[in-house]
Every structure is written in C-alpha cells, then in structure tokens.
C-alpha cells in the first residue's frame, strides 16, 4: 500500500462511498419502526416480521429467483454455443450478420424488446394456439433471449484469449472433438461460464420492463411488486427484503473468498512440504 498515491486512495474512498453508502442507508432504515421510508422513528424488527407475512412479496421473490436461475442456466448453454460457433466455425456465409444479430439485444431498448416479444406471443397464440397463457414460461423465453447476448460476449472474449494449441495437442494425442471440448476447452472457459451465469442471473432478477410486457396471471416478479407499490408509497418491507438480499450476497461472497483462500493455503503448504 506504501506506493499508492494519496490521490488514488481518495478516489478509491469516494468510489466505495458511492457504492456502499446508499446500501448502508437502506439497511439502517430497514430497522425503522416508522411507516415512512424516509423518516426515522425507532429501532424495530417489525418490517421483517411483516415481510415474511406478506404472501404477495414472498411469492414474487420466489418467482424471481426461479426465473433468474432457469434463465441464467439456459442463457449459458445457448450463449456458449453461439460463442463457440462464432469463434470456431471458421468463415461461413452470414457470419458477420449472425454475430451482430446475436449481440443485438445488448443495444436494443428494453421497451422495444418487451413490446415486440409481447406482439410475437400474441401473434403466435392467434396463429397456432401456443402459448395459451402468458406467464412464467414467456418471461423465461424473453429473459433467455437477452441474457444469452451477454453470455455470448463474455464467453467469446474468453475463447479468443484461449491458447488453441492445447486443443490441438489433445486432438493430436487422439481425443475426438467432443472429448477435447469436455476435457480441455470447457475447463479453460469455465470461469467465463460462471461469470456469464452470474451476470445473466442478476440481469434477469433486475429486469422490470421486459417482464412487465410479457408476464401473465400469477407471474408477478419482484421488481414489478416494488415498482407498483411506489404509487401508494413504498413500504419499509422493501428495505427489509433488500437488506436480506444484500447480506445473503455478502455472506456468499465472503464464504467463497474464505474457501478459496484456505485451499490456496493448504496447496502452498503442500508445496512447501514437497520442497523439504
């Protein structure tokens, strides 16, 4: 830390402040006994109790988590396939078109994506009777569509960096293409898949606009509940929920960090013993 300039430290401090101060305020206010989100009264846990009693919010949380999980998983599979084709299939007619089409949802305004998917679903049900009802399934399709674009970008850049001679070596030693992919390529790009999955998970959890358009009965997601309650004033229950989510994420991040650093330590110790 000695060679870090004062300026850098200040900038770092501001960065952390802007990132974490709002969350801190939100966590503090989740213990506020007042009905209003912006006025402090007393310390209390009452909004946590209320939160778990609120079936609408709890079911929306469940819908959102399920949706995010399935969207991210499907997006990773499809996105990786698309990235592989773009990186490995060599030159084929329409490669540029395909490449830009895959990533188009990145730059498309959400309203446009949402509305066009809604119109597509309506047109589909009118012409061949499916999907009969919009809901979880249609939101899932919509989320996979735009999450996939993000995964493709993440995985493509990893594939571009990867040393192809490793694959070639495996094939020289007699592995077929599938075996090479599973035992060589996949482990190398795995970090990209994980970060792609996490990115897709958060994007899906976050999305309000697209989900609003393509949702149907009993598929209200968490952002939809939060935004619709703004009209009659936000309830501190939302603060309580956000606090729980932040703490969960932090705990998971710390746990991951702890486990990986412990592994690192044992590995190093192992190396030391070997050297002795």
């Amino acid at each position: 830390m000695a060679n870090v300039s004062k300026f850098t430290k200040i900038v770092l401090g501001f960065g952390f402040f802007f990132l974490y101060a709002p969350m801190l305020v939100l966590i503090i206010y989740s213990f506020n006994s007042s009905e209003r989100v912006n006025i402090w009264a007393d310390f209390s846990f009452k909004w946590y109790v209320e939160l778990f009693r609120d079936d609408a919010i709890m079911s929306a949380v469940w819908v959102s988590l399920k949706l995010a999980f399935f969207s991210a998983s499907a997006a990773v599979i499809l996105g990786t396939l698309a990235a592989l084709v773009l990186a490995r299939a060599g030159k084929f007619t329409g490669k540029t078109v395909f490449g830009s089409l895959v990533t188009a949802p990145l730059v498309m305004p959400e309203v446009i994506t949402g509305l066009s998917l809604l119109l597509l679903f309506v047109a589909m049900v009118n012409s061949f009777g499916w999907p009969q009802e919009r809901g979880f399934l249609t939101i899932w399709i919509a989320h996979v569509t735009f999450c996939m674009a993000y995964v493709t970008v993440v995985v493509s850049s990893r594939l571009a960096e990867m040393d192809r001679s490793l694959e070639e070596a495996a094939m020289d030693l007699g592995a077929n293409k599938i075996k090479t992919f599973i035992f060589i390529t996949l482990p190398i790009i795995l970090p990209a898949l994980v970060s792609g999955w996490l990115l897709a998970f958060t994007l899906s959890l976050d999305d309000l606009v697209i989900a609003s358009f393509v949702s149907g009965p009993s598929s209200t997601t968490l952002p939809m509940i939060v935004f619709s309650s703004v009209r009659l004033g936000l309830s501190p229950k939302i603060n309580a929920l956000a606090t729980i989510m932040i703490l969960t994420v932090l705990t998971a991040a710390f746990a991951a960090y702890y486990i990986s650093s412990r592994e690192e330590r044992t590995r190093r110790q192992g190396e030391l013993i070997n050297e002795d």
Partner: peptide, 9 residues
C-alpha cells in the same frame, strides 16, 4: 372462487 392477484405499476 380462487383469486389470482397480480399488480402493475
């Protein structure tokens, strides 16, 4: 009759 209740913003 069962009610399915959804909200919009």
């Amino acid at each position: 009759i069962k009610v399915t209740y959804d909200v919009f913003d």
